[in-house]
Design a protein around this nucleic acid. Structure first.
Lengths: 195, 195
DNA sequence: ACGATAGCAGACAGATCTGTCTAGTGTCGT
DNA sequence: ACGACACTAGACAGATCTGTCTGCTATCGT
């Protein structure tokens, strides 16, 4: 009962705003969706939005930051059920298959956001951070698996990952992710066998 | 001279409009760029735009149709220098490397356009046509190469292609395409060797 | 010479978007 | 009881966007 959490009553305006932005921005695009739509769905006053996030760019940043964090936990917890580094490397694609199979899947939130933002904006910055995290995750797993050149394997897996993500989006079907998982398994096993 | 070409003088308003739209829409997004920017860059009256294309959606459709056709010729002519079906399959990735290495490269025009358009719109329709063409091209080349299952190889190459395209965009560097080409070569050779 | 066609210039309507501001409400800790 | 705080409701300004409309000009085929 410390003074740490000031508003446990229902949900702060900030949280409702973020939830609405997450849904609308992802489904229809950060530029297509206007401020009014967000505050209406969140049931929040416009002044609250600007008090919490400064401006629309701040809201977009928070939206992408939230996507980044939820993706990290989704992958990390999804990987817990696998025992070996080899299985975890391939398991990243199992998590991806789940993700792109959701009916609401509309591609990579970071790619989408930067496709409709200007060069060098918030979207690019957040996307870079997200990609760096993925790359390091894969390199770390590859190193644990003891493959000769972890960075090379990781680069190849990133291509499969991006291809699966984009393909599932454009085809509106998760098949590409299933194919990518199979390709990733072959690649990982070959790299491990090359010891 | 027949009555076939009515305006050889300089360049029709339609052509200038299309050139301006191609540049601006690709560089900044179909939704971000307004009609006024396009007509200003084209040096054309607003009424001409609406007389030529009906509305903005019509201009977007024509822009994507133009991208589709120029991509077809770029790939087809780029493939002419290769002699065997095997080399042409891998050659698709050589053409891709050239494309993503251009400083103005900003990812797949169809993905970008559909990322900022609503579901079921023009962008999706044009993207579907473009992807179907690519898939059929790869299946045809794989069949010519005599691989056991052309559709499977084509599906795998599409993933590499999409991954290279998206990766080069997000990393702002063509490296992913080079890696994808190497992966494609391994895949194609393995499929041919499996005869 | 004379329509027909294509194009230009720009005002205008109506919608929509971001961001600001005022004024008021309810809840908390003290 | 009271001040601080978070929030609400909505008007408002100013910009921007799509699309229409009027009026004018130049060129081309016949």
């Amino acid at each position: 009962m410390s003074a740490a959490s000031p508003a446990v009553r229902k949900q702060s305006a900030r949280d409702r705003l973020l939830a609405a932005a997450d849904e609308l921005f992802y489904a229809e695009g950060v530029h297509t969706v206007g401020i009014d739509r967000v505050i209406e769905q969140a049931g929040v006053a416009k002044a609250s939005l600007y008090s919490c996030f400064g401006n629309k760019d701040g809201l977009i940043r928070a939206y992408l930051q939230g996507r980044h964090e939820s993706r990290q936990t989704r992958i990390l917890t999804g990987l817990e059920r696998f025992d070996t580094p080899r299985d975890r490397l391939v398991g990243v694609f199992d998590v991806l298959i789940d993700y792109v199979s959701a009916p609401a899947y509309r591609g990579c939130a970071f790619y989408n956001a930067s496709a409709e933002s200007e060069k060098g904006g918030v979207a690019e910055e957040m996307s870079d951070a997200n990609r760096a995290w993925t790359q390091e995750l894969l390199i770390g797993l590859a190193r644990e698996a003891g493959v000769p050149d972890p960075a090379v394997l990781a680069a190849q897996l990133v291509i499969l990952y991006d291809g699966a993500s984009a393909g599932a989006r454009l085809d509106r079907h998760p098949e590409a992710a299933v194919t990518a998982r199979a390709m990733a398994a072959v690649l990982v096993d070959a790299a491990i066998a090359a010891l």
